[in-house]
């Protein structure tokens, strides 16, 4: 399985990521997920979220999740980008894509990775209220 992982404070370029999609002839499904910073946090308006990571462990834990996904579904590729630092409301904080032969496994793997990420990957966020 091909994998690309980026954890960075650079803005996520969704167009470039979309153009970078590669699918071999046997692949019939590409599922991607975009996590966007909401304008409210716990009911209060916010300007931004600031993401912090324990980066070496975050990368390692992401790869462990990719390993698990690879054993459960016949995936051709996983690409994931997680933003760090200050991310304004409305901006993308997480982008991920799974390519598989069929939609069932692509949806399932995408859901699995995002859900497990929220359980084991050491990334935290802090809300900045509107001034």
């Amino acid at each position: 399985m091909r994998r690309e992982l980026t954890i960075s404070d650079q803005r996520i370029d969704e167009q470039a990521l979309g153009k970078g999609r590669a699918m071999s002839a046997g692949m019939g499904a590409a599922v991607y997920f975009v996590g966007v910073v909401r304008a409210t946090e716990e009911g209060r308006p916010i300007a931004a979220l600031e993401y912090e990571a324990f980066q070496p462990m975050a990368e390692h834990q992401f790869h462990l999740l990719f390993d698990q996904a690879e054993t459960r579904w016949p995936l051709e590729s996983v690409r994931l980008v997680h933003r760090l630092g200050r991310v304004a409301a409305g901006e993308t904080a997480l982008w991920m894509e799974v390519v598989a032969p069929h939609r069932e496994e692509a949806f399932a793997a995408c859901q699995f990775i995002v859900s497990e990420m929220k359980r084991v990957v050491p990334i935290w966020k802090k809300a900045f209220p509107l001034a």
Binding site: R119, V120, W124
Partner: peptide, 10 residues
């Protein structure tokens, strides 16, 4: 050893 609160990525 690293000690931290529940994670909140995404």
């Amino acid at each position: 050893v690293s000690l931290f609160p529940p994670v909140q990525g995404g």
